[in-house]
Design a protein around this nucleic acid. Structure first.
Lengths: 160, 160
DNA sequence: TGTTAGGGTTCTATTTTAGAACTGTCAATA
DNA sequence: TATTGACAGTTCTAAAATAGAACCCTAACA
């Protein structure tokens, strides 16, 4: 399967994976949320090759996750800034970080702690139901085909 | 950078990306949460090459996200089942799906809808603070180095 | 005996990535 | 004026990873 095919899949996960489903895109986004904005900053903090970095930034801009904003005129220089669409990726980033905190840390403990400015406490992210506010577990969720589901060719196809 | 180097990074995001940060792993996990368990089921629902599928399943087992459980003896056949560590990936999967629902759907609407069994309503996942229960936004979070942070070589290093 | 199902492995050709060097603009310094 | 340096890329070549297809093995079934 080609990457371009992923974007067309009738599956929200597949389409998101088309945007952020590679190693470097996620690491670049991590840096974005840590206020990194410029080509060389990304390059030196990630150690990614300049080639791939240019490529991934271009892709993220094309998808509307980042935008290029000029910050000086001569010579023309740009910063890469998260759009609202990009900022909305925060829950994904946080849940990835949280899973790593729980399952992948070594004996030294967590590399980073997160403080919630509103309540001034160190916190973990929790995913809850928008309707009842209860924490969500995989087993408590039932999946239904929505309006954009793959048409069942004849009998029930299992659109993911 | 090699994949193996990612696992060693003092960053929970990087370590998680080492496990699930490629296209196929995420799609395989999607199928797992849709109750797919067997090699050929994965193969036909994803269209991934058998080679890569075998490789990714092996990796996910090695990381303890899936386990191989025998379901018949002669010939030996195995199912791939989510461990608790794997089930804990659910918030990641859901937040990815949700972002796709908001930002990547076409005019036909969402491919899938999610019903919360406890409250019997269609819901969206919301990420909240474990301490005060308020929804989390990127801008309301402050980051501090934790005990497992990269040591500041001399002066402040920016451990992500 | 031949066929089918499940669960892989092996092969080659094509894409991606890594790693390093090169280009070009402009500002500040020597 | 010439040189250095920051920034933001682009262009190479060699080394991985992936796609696509074919092949292998076991054991049941007809």
């Amino acid at each position: 399967m080609k990457w371009d095919a992923l974007e067309e899949e009738p599956c929200s996960l597949a389409r998101t994976v088309a945007v952020i489903g590679d190693r470097w895109s996620l690491l670049i986004l991590r840096e974005c949320f840590l206020r990194v904005r410029r080509f060389d900053e990304f390059q030196s903090s990630l150690g990614v090759t300049r080639h791939l970095l240019a490529d991934r930034l271009k892709k993220l801009v094309r998808f509307g996750v980042l935008r290029k904003a000029p910050y000086q005129d001569a010579p023309k220089r740009y910063e890469y800034i998260l759009t609202q669409k990009g900022l909305d990726l925060y829950p994904i980033i946080m849940s990835i970080v949280h899973w790593g905190n729980v399952h992948m840390v070594d004996s030294r403990g967590r590399p980073m702690l997160h403080e919630h400015k509103s309540c001034h406490k160190m916190f973990d992210p929790v995913m809850v139901c928008s309707e009842c506010g209860e924490p969500l577990a995989a087993k408590a969720v039932h999946v239904h085909p929505g309006p954009g589901a793959r048409k069942p060719a004849r009998a029930g196809g299992s659109a993911p």
